[in-house]
Design a binder for these strands. Structure first.
Lengths: 194, 194
DNA sequence: ACTAGATCAACAAAATTTCTTAAACTACTT
DNA sequence: AAGTAGTTTAAGAAATTTTGTTGATCTAGT
């Protein structure tokens, strides 16, 4: 079945046959339709989701209805509301499918038991947590220090696949600018290039 | 505030000032955007929803992706996944807004306490449950005994407001036929009439 | 063989979402 | 005071999705 996630974990820890099997069996494959929410405010995020195929956006709606994109994720990335998942508290984020997608879901209890029973799993989850943390930090930094245009250029060169795949409003909101402004930045580039 | 639901309950039990107040305070007014889900499989349906204004559809997606509409509801009707709500078990249904809507939500615990503390509330919830049951039975019967065309005619004469308000695919699926077939039935009628 | 109805495919119409552009505005910088 | 970086509002164009229609072909039951 999902050899993809085994390839993934194999990059971090070496599992034997049995462990691989155990690991796989903790995940459930779920199809998610475009626009469907997999996490919703006030509900506890029960799963951590590995995206087999698809694209998701995690966002908050502020008190005045402002939409802030916390995260965008596509194939081979993880997504959930970590504050909700890790502490098993009601979520504050929405996580929505931007296209028809397939995810592998592991639930909180299963993850806990994996980590408890085998050091390797503990290691694996630590590594992805650390990487997630580092990623968030880079992002925060880039938001604080770079201009809107730099942030966009930076994003394009780092994640060209994502740029082509997600709607512009999602990207603009992720990069912390209005869609109008992003639209202009893009046009400027195009006229420069030609 | 929501005198509408007081008018509603007044049809069934007579409440004094204080009871009315108590009852009202158990409900929260919530706006729901078109296409938003208020119940989703795998999540527990925490609320019973009284539709102040709007339209909803409750449906299941079968194993092969077949979409069965369990219920359609508009202004002044109730909707939720009752199997999930009553037993507080994970839902199997989707309940989606067919248009921008406003509902009054009561949650399970509050409803429980209303019913426990005052006989009248117990009576009220019994009555709406009985009526719901009777309605479901009529529907089941009509599905078993009538032809697609009869079911449609029947529905049109009983709920003309709904017919005009919900998309045809929803109605077709509710009436247990394909949208193509419903489309044909409708055309037949029109040509008959003129 | 007839009927009630489904399925498939192609298409048209309607509605919605997404993107673009322009104009006027705000807050900083210089 | 003028320029830069960016927002807001509004309007419209373009793209995509959703919804509904029609015809052709199929199936199960009578």
């Amino acid at each position: 079945m999902s050899s993809k996630i085994l390839d993934y974990i194999a990059k971090f820890v070496k599992l034997d046959e049995e462990e691989a099997h155990l690991f796989c069996n903790c995940f459930k494959e779920v199809k998610v339709k475009k626009r469907q929410l997999i996490v919703q405010p006030n509900f506890i995020a029960k799963h951590r989701n590995y995206i087999l195929k698809g694209a998701f956006r995690a966002y908050v709606i502020g008190d005045e209805g402002q939409d802030h994109t916390i995260n965008i994720a596509i194939d081979d990335w993880w997504i959930t509301d970590y504050n909700s998942y890790i502490y098993q508290q009601p979520a504050t984020l929405f996580v929505v499918a931007l296209e028809d997608s397939t995810v592998l879901q592991i639930d909180y209890e299963k993850e806990l038991s994996l980590k408890k029973q085998n050091h390797k799993f503990e290691t694996f989850f630590r590594i992805i947590a650390e990487r997630g943390l580092a990623f968030q930090q880079r992002r925060l930094l880039s938001n604080l220090t770079q201009s809107a245009e730099e942030r966009y250029e930076h994003f394009v060169s780092n994640y060209p696949q994502i740029v082509q795949r997600v709607p512009q409003y999602a990207l603009a909101s992720y990069l912390g600018m209005t869609t109008e402004f992003l639209s202009r930045i893009r046009n400027k580039r195009i006229s420069k290039k030609s």
